[in-house]
Each structure stands twice: as C-alpha cells, then as structure tokens.
Amino acid sequence: MRAEDLSGADAAVYRAVAEREVGTGAPHLQDIARQAGLSLEATRTAVHRLLHTEPKILHEVPDTGRTDLGPFYELAPRT
C-alpha cells in the first residue's frame, strides 16, 4: 500500500504524523488523535493498520523517557 492510496482515518493519521514530525518531532498516540481529530480508539486502530502494511508506512519508536505515554510513531522511510 502507498500513502497516496490511503483514505478516511488512515489518511488522517498519516497526515497527522507527517505534520507533527515536521513541527515537533515524532508524536505519541494521543498527539496523533488530537491532530487528526479522531478518538483514541479510532486512532489506535488506524495506527495498527499502518504499522502492518506492506510496504511499511509507519513504524513505532520506543519512548526511552520516563513517561507513560507509550511509543512514538514515525513515517517509515520511503524506498
């Protein structure tokens, strides 16, 4: 799947991650939901789909800080 083929919540999540990466760096799930205007559950579902596409669209980066906010999400490098 290509980013250009996304629609609905998947497209909103992709755009939110891309916009946050440029502005403030890789976002947490809560940041993505707020940016995309989606519920946390809808965002979690879309992120899960995007993490498991072929080729990868998103990837998960562990938060090495001392927060309970969970991992960060970044756009996967395009090949």
Rank of each mutant, 00 (worst) to 15 (best):
R20V: 02
L51I: 03
G8Q: 12
R66Y: 07
G23I: 13
Y73K: 05
V47D: 02
V17K: 01
L58G: 04
Q35W: 00
Y73S: 02
D31Q: 15
D5M: 12
T24Q: 15
P62F: 05
E19G: 07
T79M: 00
D68N: 13
T67N: 09
T43H: 02
T79G: 11
L75Y: 04
E54D: 14
I57F: 04
L69Q: 09
L29N: 07
R20C: 15
E74F: 00
R2P: 00
P62T: 06
A9I: 04
V22Y: 05
A46Q: 11
R20E: 11
H59W: 12
A3R: 13
P27R: 09
D31E: 15
R66A: 08
V22I: 15
R44Y: 03
A16E: 04
R34H: 07
L75F: 04
S7C: 08
R15D: 06
R49E: 07
P62Q: 06
T67C: 01
P71S: 15
P62S: 10
V13P: 06
T45M: 08
Q35G: 00
E19V: 05
Q30T: 11
Y73L: 03
S7L: 04
T67L: 10
Q35Y: 03
R78T: 10
D68T: 11
P27S: 12
A3D: 09
E4S: 15
T24V: 15
V17E: 00
A12N: 05
A36W: 01
V47C: 05
D5Y: 08
E74L: 10
E41P: 04
V47R: 01
